[in-house]
């Protein structure tokens, strides 16, 4: 029941974001978070965004994850 899902914000109008969740567009209430902009990622639960990850932070995270995976792949090949 505590399942929460990350999704990318497409647009923001007042306190509602339209997000892209694996190809599906959803409306998400933003009143529990601050400073959400298009391109950011939000963690969604029960119709609300519970937390925000900025576009820059998300890209940095993806970079490090990919780096970790690449290192893991190198280790498993050696």
């Amino acid at each position: 029941m505590c399942l929460a899902i990350p999704a990318r914000v497409l647009s923001v109008e007042d306190e509602v974001a339209t997000v892209d969740l694996e190809g599906t567009r959803l409306h998400v209430n933003l009143s529990l978070v601050e400073g959400v902009a298009p391109g950011d990622h939000v963690l969604i639960h029960a119709g609300f965004a519970l937390e925000v990850l900025s576009d820059a932070d998300a890209q940095e995270l993806a970079f490090y994850r990919e780096r970790m995976r690449a290192l893991g792949a190198q280790e498993s090949m050696s």
Binding site: M1, N29, L32, H45, A46, F48
Partner: peptide
């Protein structure tokens, strides 16, 4: 309104 802290803010809001 069943749930833990994850759900409580949605209910309260």
């Amino acid at each position: 309104g069943v749930g833990f802290e994850t759900t409580a803010p949605a209910i309260a809001q």
